[in-house]
């Protein structure tokens, strides 16, 4: 039997099928939680935001245009709530939401520079698994919210650029430039961390 699409399930829900929305909740909870957790870096917040997002989707389902895709819509709701939380925590939005990103001013190497260096420079020194997890998490967490959001959506959730544009509320071109800037910053910071780790290993004779 063919699995119903999200949009069919939402239409079923609007038509009065009692378990249709529950199926949507069960289908998307884990992925949505992963997204919010990586975006906010807070488990309790991810738990709360995911609940609030589904509740709002449930209450607003009647306004949803079922010719559009459900998943980006759900993520848009969750992303808005996650941004509200980040703002309430006083986290600095380093660039206005609708700003274009100048790669040369983003604090890391430009995307093009990263692509043209020597191949063996990148990740030549491997970190241990636990250390690598901590380092990567710290770097991603330290990215400005607007960069981290597109990186998480594009890399971990494989959203299409136009869907990311819908979730974030900016043009596709801005999504791409933010993504390039995010990768540039990440790669630069990761390389620096690896080099520091290598220096420490040498210093302590490890």
């Amino acid at each position: 039997m063919k699995t119903p699409t999200d949009e069919h399930l939402l239409q079923d829900h609007l038509d009065g099928r009692s378990d249709a929305f529950e199926l949507l909740v069960r289908r998307h909870t884990v992925e949505l939680h992963r997204f919010v957790l990586r975006f906010t870096n807070s488990s309790p917040t991810a738990d709360d935001v995911v609940q609030e997002a589904f509740l709002q989707a449930y209450l607003s389902a009647g306004k949803f245009d079922t010719s559009r895709r459900f998943r980006p819509w759900l993520f848009t709701i969750a992303a808005n709530k996650a941004r509200d939380w980040l703002r309430s925590r006083g986290r600095r939005m380093e660039v206005p939401l609708d700003a274009k990103v100048d790669w040369d001013l983003d604090g890391g190497k430009s995307f093009a520079d990263l692509m043209t260096g020597a191949e063996q420079e990148v990740g030549a020194v491997e970190l241990q698994a636990g250390e690598q997890r901590r380092v990567v998490r710290r770097i991603v967490e330290s990215l400005p919210d607007i960069f981290r959001e597109v990186l998480v959506l594009a890399y971990y959730h494989r959203f299409a650029y136009r869907e990311i544009a819908e979730v974030v509320g900016v043009p596709v071109g801005t999504v791409k430039s933010r993504l390039h800037a995010a990768i540039g910053r990440f790669a630069t910071a990761y390389q620096e961390s690896v080099e520091v780790d290598e220096t420490e290993r040498n210093t302590f004779g490890l």
Partner: peptide
């Protein structure tokens, strides 16, 4: 350049999350 980009992105896979 393709291989280089792949190596740039690989560390991102280490950022795993705990399940809800």
């Amino acid at each position: 350049r393709s291989r280089r980009l792949q190596r740039l992105l690989e560390p991102l896979d280490a950022f795993t999350t705990t399940p809800p």
